Every structure is written in C-alpha cells, then in structure tokens.
Simulated scan of single mutants.
Amino acid sequence: MNRTMFNALCLEQLKLSAVNEAETLAVLTRGDERADYVDSFLWAAQQLGAQAFHLRLPAPMDTEAAWKVGDIGLASNPLALEALKSVDMVIDCALMLFSLEQLAIQEAGTRILTAIDPMSTLAKLFPTTELRERVELSQQYLAKARSLRFTNAFGTDVTYRLGAYPAMAEYGYTDTPGRWDNWGCGFAFTGAYDDGVDGTIVLAPGDIVHPFNKYVQSPVKFTIESGFIVDIRGVDGHTSLDADMIRAFIEGFDDPRGFGMSHVGWGLDERAQWYLMREDPSVIGVETRSFYGNVMISTGPNNELGGPNDTPCHLDIPMRDCSLYLDDELILDAGALVPADLRPTSHQ
C-alpha cells in the first residue's frame, strides 16, 4: 500500500478514536520495526492539530521475544513509561499487551490502540460503526451469561463458568479514556472463574494456533480440569505432531500457569477470512482471530481481564464450525451466529 493511502487511513482511524487539537498522542515502537507506521500516524495527528511524538524502545536482546507476551522493555525504562502515561492516546506498534505497564498506562486514563498487522490487512478490516454495534451486543450477551458451553463434530464439549471477569469488546478503535483496542479486530470475549473450565476441546484440521501462525493438520485433544489443561494428545490413539508442538511450547516456559485457560469468545467480522493467515510471528493475525463465527480459546495470561495469571506463555486458537451456548441458549450453530442482531446484513 502506498504511503498516501495509509496516511488517509490513519487520519480516519484517529478521527474514529476522537483525537483532537487538545490532545497529545505517542507512537510506540521497538527497534527498527514499523517506522513507516510512525510517519503516517504522526502526519495524521498533525492534521487534527494534536501534539504527537515517537517513542522508540531498543530492539529486544532475546531472540525468542516474539513468542512471549508481557515484556517489551518498559519495566526497565520508567521514564518511557511515565511519558506514555502522560498522553491521551498511545499507538502501540510494539505490542505491550498483557504487560503490567499497559495496565498502568490504561489506569492513568490513556487509551491505547495496537497497530501491528500489515497495512493491507488494516485497510481491509478498517473498523466500522456497524461492526462496533454487533461486537458490543455480543459483549452484552457474554456479560449476562453465567455459563458458556461449546462443542464441535470432533468431540469438543467444554463448559466455562462465567461471572468472575468482565466481558470485553474489540472493534478496532478506541475513543474512551483508559480503553485498549486493536486495529483490525472484531470479536467479543470473556474469561471463566480461574477454576471454572472443565471438559474436552478437540482442535480440528484447519483450526489455527497463534503465535505459531499454523493451521492444525491432525486433531488435538485437550483435557481440562478446574481451569487447567491436564493432558494434550492426539485422538483415538493416533500421534499428533500438532499436539506435541503445543505441549512442548507450553512446557518450554517452565511455568505451570501456561496450562491455564484464559479468555473465550467469538469473531464477528464477515470481511475476515480464516484461510488468509500470514505466517509471520511479528504480526498479531487480526484476520484469523476475527473471522465471522469462529470460537477462539486462549491459554495463559488473564491479567487483561483483571485476573492473576501473567505468564508470558500465551496461545490464541480460533476454531471453526463450533456450536456455542450461553446459559443453554444457542448463539453459534456450527459456526453461524443465531441471534439476528449479531449477524451482518449479508448473513440475514
């Protein structure tokens, strides 16, 4: 995408996010990543009369940093942290999600927008007010529920006991003090009680494992008891390379909290396609997290919801063709949203 087009998108993004001449905006990066994003956001802020600056952190020394969450170097850089807490909005191009520092910035009243994925994806999934309405309605459905159960044809049958943590909405922009969002996302989610997930989840071929950014090739069975995965294996006695990789990844952190279950929710963006994954560990993968009708499970940290688990071991797994119930009400039927108010016009 050429610079002029992305400049225009950043300007419209900042307008949606209510940036104005009375505000200050910071663009956060690390190393030499996304320098072109910085220029576009700074230009857009100038057009709106806002004061803006670029805060660039050193590149990570850890070569495996892309696989960990919660630490981009702010913990050891209090001056940088205070600078980010002092502004009205941060454009996060470094991914500080799940960090204590992000929570501190939000508590200071600063709103945060993550912009990590390729420009072409951000353009394709540019946020709309109509998507926001359906995401916020989904958030309301989750907030009212006390149980969530989902199944699939491969043997999944798992129940989440809800009510401990808030329901969250991601619709791609943020105009509320202290709120975080992620440009390109369109889904709602919540978390169970820390000991409130029990049952079986079976990943099917074509389901997606982030941050591997890989499609599952052979079924993977998770056995979950009291909120923790206690077994990962293939099904019907078959070996599964996918199961071995997931198990080894979690064990590699030497942190038993990595086996904890985190958030769960569903995707709502009909423009996103499950088959268009980018095999690039430096991007989030908003398209494959947001595609319409997926059920996405997460493992590891739940501190973004207010929980105690801040392990750096994190997996997001969008699953296709699942049926999902809230308090026994059918919400998703084999990957299709049932309530009419959650469906886009093209699916009604």
Results as ranks from 00 to 15, higher is better:
305 L>Q: 11
247 R>V: 00
114 T>S: 14
154 F>N: 01
138 S>F: 07
6 F>T: 12
229 I>Y: 06
122 L>T: 00
196 G>N: 08
91 I>Y: 01
324 L>T: 06
272 A>P: 11
306 G>E: 10
48 L>E: 07
321 D>A: 03
80 A>E: 08
98 F>I: 05
51 Q>W: 04
188 A>H: 12
337 L>K: 05
221 K>F: 00
265 G>C: 04
123 A>R: 05
142 L>C: 05
348 Q>K: 11
58 P>D: 07
304 E>V: 13
342 L>G: 06
56 R>A: 14
10 C>S: 13
44 A>T: 02
310 D>R: 00
146 R>E: 12
329 E>Q: 14
99 S>F: 13
348 Q>S: 08
332 L>I: 07
126 F>L: 06
140 Q>E: 08
93 C>G: 15
205 P>Y: 09
86 S>C: 05
257 R>G: 03
101 E>T: 10
284 I>R: 03
327 D>R: 08
112 I>R: 11
254 D>F: 12
309 N>K: 10
43 W>S: 04
171 Y>V: 06
110 T>E: 11
58 P>R: 04
61 M>N: 07
57 L>G: 05
139 Q>M: 09
233 R>M: 00
325 Y>A: 05
158 V>G: 04
28 L>K: 06
64 E>G: 00
256 P>R: 14
232 I>C: 04
336 A>H: 07
209 V>I: 10
151 T>F: 00
192 A>L: 10
302 N>D: 10
145 A>Q: 08
92 D>N: 10
40 S>Y: 04
294 N>R: 06
185 C>P: 00
147 S>I: 12
253 F>Y: 09
105 I>M: 08
121 T>A: 09
254 D>A: 15
266 W>Y: 15
216 V>T: 06
65 A>I: 05
34 R>W: 13
262 S>F: 10
177 P>F: 14
327 D>H: 10
98 F>T: 05
188 A>T: 12
147 S>K: 09
283 V>F: 11
168 M>H: 11
205 P>C: 03
96 M>Q: 14
137 L>T: 13
266 W>E: 03
129 T>W: 08
27 V>T: 02
78 P>M: 14
301 P>W: 02
240 S>G: 01
169 A>N: 07
329 E>R: 14
10 C>I: 00
104 A>K: 12
209 V>H: 03
326 L>I: 08
240 S>P: 09
159 T>N: 11
202 V>L: 06
176 T>W: 07
185 C>N: 15
265 G>N: 06
234 G>I: 03
192 A>Q: 12
136 E>D: 12
203 L>K: 02
42 L>P: 00
32 D>V: 11
288 T>D: 13
69 V>H: 10
282 S>L: 15
344 P>I: 02
75 A>I: 01
279 E>D: 15
228 F>C: 02
130 E>A: 15
45 A>Q: 04
237 G>N: 10
202 V>S: 03
70 G>R: 13
57 L>N: 04
180 W>S: 04
193 Y>D: 09
126 F>M: 11
207 D>W: 03
12 E>Y: 01
183 W>M: 08
338 V>A: 01
326 L>E: 12
321 D>S: 03
80 A>S: 15
37 Y>W: 13
127 P>M: 09
340 A>P: 00
43 W>M: 04
139 Q>H: 05
208 I>E: 02
82 E>T: 12
322 C>A: 14
